[in-house]
Amino acid sequence: MRNVGIIFKKEIDSYFVSPVAYLLLTMFGLIFGFFFWNAVSYFVMVGIESQMRGGGGPMNLNEYVIRPLLSNVSVVGLFFIPMMTMRLFAEEKRTGTIELLATSPIRDIEVILGKWLAAVALYGCMLLFTAVNFAFLFRYGNPDWKPLAVGYLGLLLQAGGLLAVGTLISTMTRNQIIAGAATFGVCLMLWILEWVSGYETAAWAQVLAYCSVITHFESFAKGVIDSKDVVFYISLIFLGLFLTSRSMESLRWRS
């Protein structure tokens, strides 16, 4: 556990010493700010219209603002995740520092967990930006906090799974660009797999749709913790990290 902490701290330092973290956080902050502004403006417009028509029940902030925004974050995350993981192992392999880690009295899995947790923590920082925006909703409105908390849990689980996949891909190459591009491709694929369910209901289509990370986020966005989706994300995390450790071991046998 101590070793995981050492690697975690080193990775967090390297995210924040370089411009990587600031760049990602700024870009995400701008994009999310724009989403938020749009969602709230739309909410206000619809609200005014329904008042002018003199009717309509009370409108729900959770349903009109928070839910679509969380779905947006989930999709935007797909673009940011490759940038967080592409460096993790590819850089160590390129500069040879992997030899230091591999010859120190520390287990592979501790290195992997430290690095993966650092990436999850950086994603968590991104979510903090969204929290700043949502704070305004609580200041001027009265949304329910529970669905929001569930949504954050879902986002973290989803990102955890994709970051594990990214970590795995980063161990396979010494070129960061390849690692980043491949991770982006896989993330995108895991997103659009869900589309087949729109026109096909055969078993294979259901399997494909089930593999889509987006399908499993819908319930979280609604504020529902569905154990089926939790199990999916946790399995993805385990599978990703397990394969990463296999991949690291195979480096030794092949290199």
Binding site: K10, V17, T95, T97, L100, R107
Partner: peptide
């Protein structure tokens, strides 16, 4: 391997240093 690694110091051909540290 853990016992071995505890007892060795290793300098590879290219020093395994992190330039940002």
């Amino acid at each position: 391997p853990m016992e071995v690694k505890r007892r060795i110091g290793y300098l590879p051909e290219t020093p395994p240093v992190y330039p940002e540290m």
